[in-house]
Design a protein around this nucleic acid. Structure first.
Lengths: 200, 200, 200, 200
DNA sequence: AATGAATGAGCATTCATTCAT
DNA sequence: TATGAATGAATGCTCATTCAT
């Protein structure tokens, strides 16, 4: 309504914010130049001016979401103590996450979905897993860290899709099994994936 | 091309087949009445006649895919021997699957993730997990079976999205950890999820 | 659901009833073979079998509505006494009608609308006005009866469309003016309109 | 035909004009994005760009029609003289209107009646009645003005729907009765209806 | 006599993108 | 630089009617 806003720095940022809100509310399928322009209260042309394509805008939005989440994860109190029970800590974090920010979790896994078919999003999805691994750095070896990420992803999907309530005890038990290096040694020391160039 | 086909039983089946091909090729986002009508070589109106909505058609197609996959899994030779090494068997099956039918795997996980936003797909996604659990029935307890499914899902996503090659040894090791009941007992005996009525 | 109903007399009647319900609920625009078939719980083909076209079905439904309303009008207690105050009686009937059967009133005037553009409905609309005139027969001359009908139509539209509450006193006053033959004699004794052949 | 017309001011106006022609010719039911685009010789997308919905376009078109008619009414010579015979003047205007612009009259009443089911049209219908009342302002009290409008509406519908020729003498007589305040005083001084905000 | 299948036309609407200003 | 207008393709879906059974 307050239309005449010709000089507007951080308009770009506001568009990204709006895109994130739209995607969180309606899913990636709900993102369009129109919806984001309306949400950001900017003219339609402004979105195409600042972002060459929808994918470009989506990548920017998801990257911002990743950063926010990664920071929250790294700063979570459960991971602070150096000798914390890692399985218990992750199980508690997952529980809080599923409980409090379900929309955010859905967004994260919807990103996974989109990345399956849209190569431009692959690097962002990869960064996502990287955030988690980074938070585990030093607490366990890389192979185990990957296993933990896989288990967390699998459990999250199970809880997001099934009708169950989250059961922290169960999650802790499963993560603990993955952590138990004695049972079977990690056979292959995985190298980091080839980080593709990120934009478009 | 062969247009004058007024009498055509199993037209419905042919539409489902075509939908499955379209989704396998272009993803769920590529499915539309028009694309499926073209693929099945039927008039547009025919697809809307047989399926009241796209979701209905999609569910039918995915249900078919589930059944096919479930059968293949249950009949896979690796799971035949009663005392087989379960971790190794699953790792091999995953490998073969990722190698030979990558499109099918992508489809499966796209279904998983699409169900996040489209409630109509939830029951189908749930059936999907059920197929895997059914294949593991009797080989391990339910809690562990769920853990295995979660780990397999997580690993598949990792391989589908990242740039890695599949490493069977690594997968076997991680699955073996999940199987190692000694490390930590399954705390919560999970009940079956509320299985929604299946046919729409 | 109770599908196998091959022998079903008065199916035709049930279809007409269903059509009337549909039109009353969703308007004439909401009437289609599909909606009426669903409402009547009969197969789609049944509606086209019993009625050659939608117009034919619509005419049958509206004719039934007319008859019902006409009977109610003729039997209304306000018109029973031979020396009743006609203006007051009509005003009260209108009020009750607008109050209790607003849907029915809307239906009646929607018929007017449709008849403007669909000649097949003209005779039915004419019958409608005829019902009212018949109820007034003997109470006043034909010219005045027509004037009363016109005033009632105009007032009904005013109340249906405007935001006003119905004001019986005002309606009575206006109808009384129309009845006051002293003020200006009806100049032209109107003949009955040429009743067109009714079907199609 | 003259396709390459990228710069085209008053495109919006031309679309409204075309819509009015379409509605006048085929009725409100005949209005669609396609018909109006064809009539205006603009691409289909142009109509949806300028008007968010068909209702919005319809309202714009009808509003234009209202304004045109209101002006004609206010400027009609029959109403010019301050002490003119109001009943005779209105009867003559009605006659001319029904004779010369039958399409326009049909449109006006189709609007009235369409508003029954489409709330978006209600304010426009209300404005329509307001135009007539405005033309009578100062010539009679408000209650009588409303009665005149009701009678005119009822008579118009009668003539539009029935097979009669318009009979000016009869109309004059009936309107004169409504005007005859002596017969029964207007009981209720009607307030103006809640005039909805007009521009969408 | 009755009906499910079929169909081609049509519908409102959304869309990413281009372009003239 | 910024943006409203423009556009052609595509979307899901409804429809009256026809037709083979």
């Amino acid at each position: 309504m307050a239309r005449p806003r010709r000089y507007d720095p951080d308009r770009r940022e506001r568009i990204v914010d709006a895109a994130l809100r739209v995607v969180g509310r309606d899913g990636i399928a709900g993102l369009s130049h129109r919806t984001v322009a309306a949400e950001a209260d900017v003219p339609l042309g402004s979105t195409t001016y600042h972002f060459g394509s929808l994918d470009e805008l989506l990548v920017a939005a998801l990257r911002r979401a990743n950063a926010t989440f990664g920071q929250a994860l790294r700063e979570s109190p459960e991971l602070a103590g150096p000798d914390a029970d890692l399985a218990a800590a992750l199980a508690r974090i997952m529980g809080r996450w599923l409980d409090e920010d379900r929309g955010e979790v859905e967004l994260a896994y919807e990103l996974y979905l989109a990345a399956l078919r849209r190569p431009a999003l692959r690097p962002v999805a990869e960064e996502w897993a990287g955030e988690v691994r980074a938070a585990l750095a030093g607490r366990t070896d890389l192979a185990t860290a990957r296993g933990l990420v896989a288990m967390m992803d699998g459990l999250c999907l199970m809880y997001l899709l099934g009708g169950h309530r989250y059961q922290e005890g169960y999650a802790r038990a499963m993560l603990a099994r993955v952590l138990d290096e004695g049972s079977e040694a990690p056979v292959v020391p995985l190298s980091e994936p080839p980080t593709a160039p990120t934009d478009t």
